[in-house]
Design a protein around this nucleic acid. Structure first.
Length: 650
DNA sequence: GGACTCTCAAGATC
DNA sequence: CGATCTTGAGAGTC
């Protein structure tokens, strides 16, 4: 820690001649891949359809359900079959369009005719949840289950918020989504175990109790103590295997490695019933037995979301053991069991980081290697830190910080449209033309998260009469997260957030200068490492949107709209915002989404980044740069290090 | 804006 | 199979 030793060299006034030209990603050598080796390219038309969001992702085996399409063979065959998945999904969607509008429920079954299911006769993608990986998971399965949960939950929120009379409706989309996943068997790590949960990493964050349940980290939907029956007999022979410290009880969570956890029970059940003494039974008894057994106990710490105090975030803080227990008088005057849990040494930090970040934000301390408090020089509403803890005080190469996308000339994309709402646009209000432009669905849930990826999201424009607080302006509100541009050991500069990020949250726009002539792109990409190009094709498709069949919905027909979206190419070499520091990954945690809104009587395209999954603080933000369609384009070696790394990008 | 109350929920267990 | 237990999350209130 070299606290307080910086506070200089804001890049806008550093001596350009002395600054090394640091690329966002280190370029090793040009890489040319023959077509036989190249990964499958999807929908190569520059006008779309949108390359990333619409081809269903099959991360796991189809178990021979797409015969003849699986061309990888060997080990790969039971992992991923992107070719087959795309072939199937693409054709079935086209067939489904128009014909099956009415038979929503039926169509799901008939579309899948001939496919054998392993679970509840649901959609074929559920077949990936095999008895094997439902019992014991891995990272891929955990991420898949979490992504499915949140996609379903977002959709249920969207449907719910559009409803006029919320009587008998889904008030708890999280519980409903949990129920859908449980009943369809979309879950993992169902086998209870002592110690680590395969695929769940220390530091992982969760926004709902059900998320923790469906990945098998903690097997109680509400209760704070989960137990494992050790001998075939009574419940008495149980050990505590995981606990959630949520704030409901008076736990002491001050120390980053020690947790004083309260036993369960004794709370007043209703207004009439008084608090009572806790008894040495159930979870309390299991904790007591675990004290003597000294077995590992998983600890999940709940805390307020620094972004939104009404939201609670759960952080998996790794394994602890119980060292002591005692009985004391609680605030109500009744006896409460207390357990002292101590974190096992040698685990990567998780909860401790949250404490550090709080101090940084409060100005009580600084991260090691802080060079600048704000590389945006005040352009952003929230400061953007610059940190180099790797090689001294070197700063990124010179550029002009801009929060907006600069168009050199106006491009009329569609007829500009403004809505006629005079407060905030209301989900479900089909009189609102902005909502109609989005196909009738409000693109964002009330929490501000994007519900589904689409070819194009139509936001309300600055000229719409609705309030600036209208929820349909998410990408126009600027940075909300506390960002940090930081130096990595091997990938140049990178971007991360001090705040936790919920899946679907808006992160930032890709600011820069629009490159006018798409025909001239071939040359531009050669020299400019800060090009963003919507016509690049993503090397790996994935499914972010909810699976309609899980909710007995028909597959929406997106094929007719947005066929004429032109390619958008942006250079952030000279002008840009934090987005220019985001590196490529083949397994990214961020994706981009085209947004359109009206400005000065013309409609303009924007590129907005959203969180693909929940992102813990200080995790590098990455997106898939995609692959240029120009064969002469210079490709670069990928250093993302993910298991499914395709080896190159660009 | 935040602390509080109210309401309606879920799975596990017995 | 249903009652009981154990709180979570969102909305509404002051």
């Amino acid at each position: 820690m070299e606290e307080g030793s910086f506070r200089s060299s804001i890049p806008t006034y550093v001596d350009k001649s002395k600054v090394l030209d640091v690329k966002p990603l280190r370029t090793l050598k040009p890489l040319f891949v023959s077509s036989a080796q190249a990964p499958p390219l999807f929908s190569s038309s520059p006008s779309g359809p949108f390359p990333s969001g619409f081809t269903p992702f099959y991360p796991f085996s189809m178990n021979g359900e797409s015969p003849g399409k699986n061309q990888r063979g060997g080990m790969a065959s039971d992992k991923m079959d992107v070719d087959g998945a795309n072939g199937n999904a693409g054709s079935s969607r086209k067939r489904g369009a128009g014909k099956q509008k009415k038979a929503a429920r039926k169509s799901v079954g008939s579309r899948n005719a001939g496919v054998s299911f392993t679970v509840n006769g649901g959609a074929n993608f559920i077949a990936r949840c095999t008895p094997f990986n439902k019992e014991d998971g891995d990272r891929e399965m955990v991420e898949y289950v979490l992504m499915t949960f949140d996609a379903v939950r977002r959709r249920l929120s969207q449907v719910e918020e559009a409803r006029e009379a919320p009587n008998g409706s889904i008030k708890r989309p999280d519980l409903k989504a949990g129920n859908v996943l449980m009943s369809k068997g979309v879950r993992t790590n169902m086998r209870k175990r002592i110690g680590a949960t395969p695929g769940v990493e220390i530091g992982d964050i969760f926004f709902f109790r059900f998320e923790i349940l469906v990945v098998g980290l903690h097997g109680q939907s509400m209760g704070g103590i989960d137990t494992l029956i050790t001998k075939g007999g009574k419940g008495d022979d149980s050990l505590a295997i995981s606990i959630v410290s949520s704030g409901y009880y008076d736990d002491d969570t001050e120390d980053k490695d020690v947790l004083i956890y309260s036993g369960q029970g004794g709370n007043p059940i209703s207004k009439e019933k008084e608090a009572s003494d806790q008894k040495l039974e159930k979870g309390n008894l299991a904790l007591e037995r675990s004290l003597h057994q000294a077995n590992e106990v998983r600890v999940i710490r709940g805390m307020k979301d620094p972004m939104n105090s009404s939201v609670k975030i759960y952080v998996y803080d790794g394994l602890y053991t119980i060292k002591e227990s005692w009985l004391e008088k609680g605030k109500s005057g009744c006896s409460v069991f207390k357990y002292k849990l101590v974190r096992l040494p040698g685990q990567r930090s998780a909860f401790a980081d949250w404490n550090s970040i709080q101090k940084w934000k409060a100005g009580l301390s600084s991260p090691a290697g802080l060079i600048s408090q704000d590389i945006s020089s005040g352009a952003e509403k929230i400061t953007v830190a610059l940190v180099n803890d790797v090689d001294g005080r070197e700063a990124p190469s010179y550029f002009t910080y801009s929060t907006v996308l600069r168009y050199s000339r106006s491009i009329r994309l569609t007829n500009p449209s403004v809505c006629n709402c005079h407060k905030a646009c209301q989900p479900g209000d089909l009189n609102c033309s902005c909502i109609r432009n989005n196909g009738g669905d409000f693109p964002y849930a009330s929490s501000g998260v994007l519900v589904s990826q689409k070819p194009l999201v139509h936001e309300c424009s600055p000229t719409c009469p609705c309030f600036p607080t209208c929820k349909n302006r998410v990408s126009q509100s600027g940075l909300k997260l506390k960002m940090e541009v930081y130096k990595t050991t091997d990938k140049g500069w990178a971007l991360r957030s001090w705040d936790p990020i919920r899946a679907g949250s808006f992160i930032c726009e890709y600011a820069g200068e629009v490159v006018d002539s798409p025909s001239g792109l071939q040359g531009i990409g050669q020299e400019d490492d800060y090009i963003f190009d919507t016509s690049r094709v993503l090397g790996q498709s994935y499914k972010w949107n909810y699976e309609p069949s899980l909710l007995n919905e028909e597959i929406p027909d997106e094929s007719t709209e947005n066929d004429n979206i032109p390619a958008l190419v942006i250079s952030a070499k000279n002008v840009g915002n934090v987005a220019r520091f985001m590196n490529h990954s083949c397994n990214p945690n961020v994706f981009w989404q085209l947004i359109q809104y009206e400005q000065n009587r013309d409609s303009f395209l924007h590129v907005a980044f959203f969180a693909k999954k929940h992102i813990p603080p200080l995790t590098e933000l990455t997106y898939d740069y995609g692959i240029s369609q120009f064969e002469t384009h210079r490709r670069r070696n990928c250093l993302c290090g993910s298991e499914k790394c395709r080896g190159f990008f660009g």
